[in-house]
Design a protein around this nucleic acid. Structure first.
Lengths: 223, 223
DNA sequence: TTGCAATTCAAACACTTGTATGAAACTATC
DNA sequence: GATAGTTTCATACAAGTGTTTGAATTGCAA
């Protein structure tokens, strides 16, 4: 195993460079230069560039997923196997938002890296994301238990919309700040989480009919 | 101006290839081969690869934005300068969703291209998206007129969440289908639009306090 | 037809990319 | 301190990229 120094120097440098400049224009040569390491070291320690990226992403997303499940499990145990829907949603989007938002100058490299990964979506990362379905199914299950009257379809749509709001807010946080001229405070992470959870809860608990029957007259008018 | 044949052959081939295989692994050589055209033609007619991509994206997004504003204007005129919030949201997300979802086999090349653009986000496209803020401000204005009691902050958050649900659903439509084992029907575009509009409307009209005050006790518990 | 501009073409250019190689340097074990 | 295994290093490789060039061709007007 030896010193491991080179390995972790590469990981740190790569994460920082990718976070700062995106996957698009950071080359292996940039990384090894920043890490003060030989070019061949990347292939020696990681096999390939894609495996390096994958390792960075996996590390971080495992941490997030673990935190999510920890919150979920704690909530369900406390509620005797059934947690309130707000708390489930909180466990779903909280760790991600907490990990990626917050005051920019004190945002960790890891957080900035994950934002990049969310924006740019390179192949090795896409492959990993596709394996996340099993993880999401656990949340779908908890949501079903919390809302036994709700159809599966509604559950999945609610899950989809919750993730949508969280991820889009992360991806487009800069644009939202600009659009709102700073009125939307993306640094107040707990407020952002509360907003997402609140809307997602409404989506999941509102009268079933409303969600499915559009105001047809209005919709047709606008055509 | 001459024949223009080469120019449009390139545009068509590029749009199809990018739609099918993504920006990542389509080269100029692939495009000119598909268009039966000489390699140098791209630079001759468009200046550079990035300008070709930009032209493709601008064309489509101008069409979408025009459609959005047409619906918005029609609705506001009909309501004497003030349209119902549902209709405004419908005008905002309808054209995009209608353009990108629907039965896969009858999805237009343009639609599939726009999905790619939404997923991969290459530099020339990102640059254009950043100029979309003025367009969104028009919708923020209409929403303010529809909900004069609402604070600007809430308006912008509602706008953000509406776009979030629409775009995320497009980006991750495949994953949602898989996750729900086909139960969520992404081909029924009008139903998807209705769901997004419904949730966004709730987000914008629900009691103001709920949105800001999280169930603090529960949130703390889960930590 | 002649002349001139617009277009097309084959070829090469100039670079960058990730990866592979094989020798050198190091490290720990006996 | 010799040896075996690991790690580092300079260097080269092979392939692919967008772009440029300058000559050939085309189309159209005088």
């Amino acid at each position: 195993m030896a010193s491991d120094h080179t390995r972790s120097a590469i990981l740190a440098a790569a994460e920082r460079l990718y976070a700062d400049r995106g996957f698009g224009d950071v080359t292996l040569r940039d990384i090894v230069a920043a890490a003060s390491v030989n070019l061949a070291a990347v292939n020696y320690h990681f096999g390939s560039k894609d495996e390096l990226i994958a390792e960075l992403f996996v590390t971080r997303s495992i941490a997030t997923n673990r935190e999510r499940l920890r919150e979920l499990k704690a909530a369900e145990e406390q509620g005797g196997g059934r947690a309130p829907i707000e708390v489930i949603l909180h466990a779903l989007v909280g760790p991600t938002l907490r990990g990626c938002l917050g005051p920019e100058n004190q945002r960790s490299t890891a957080a900035r890296f994950m934002i990049r990964a969310s924006i740019e979506s390179v192949p090795p990362i896409r492959r990993i994301k596709n394996r996340e379905i099993d993880h999401l199914r656990k949340f779908a299950g908890a949501m079903r238990r919390a809302l036994p009257d709700r159809s599966d379809v509604d559950i999945y749509w609610g899950l989809n919309f919750a993730l949508a709001m969280a991820h889009h807010t992360i991806r487009e946080s800069e644009r939202l700040t600009k659009l709102s001229e700073g009125k939307c405070d993306l640094d107040d992470v707990e407020d952002v989480i509360a907003r997402v959870v609140s809307v997602a809860t409404m989506a999941l608990t509102a009268g079933r009919n409303e969600a499915k029957a559009p105001p047809r007259a209005l919709a047709r008018d606008a055509r």
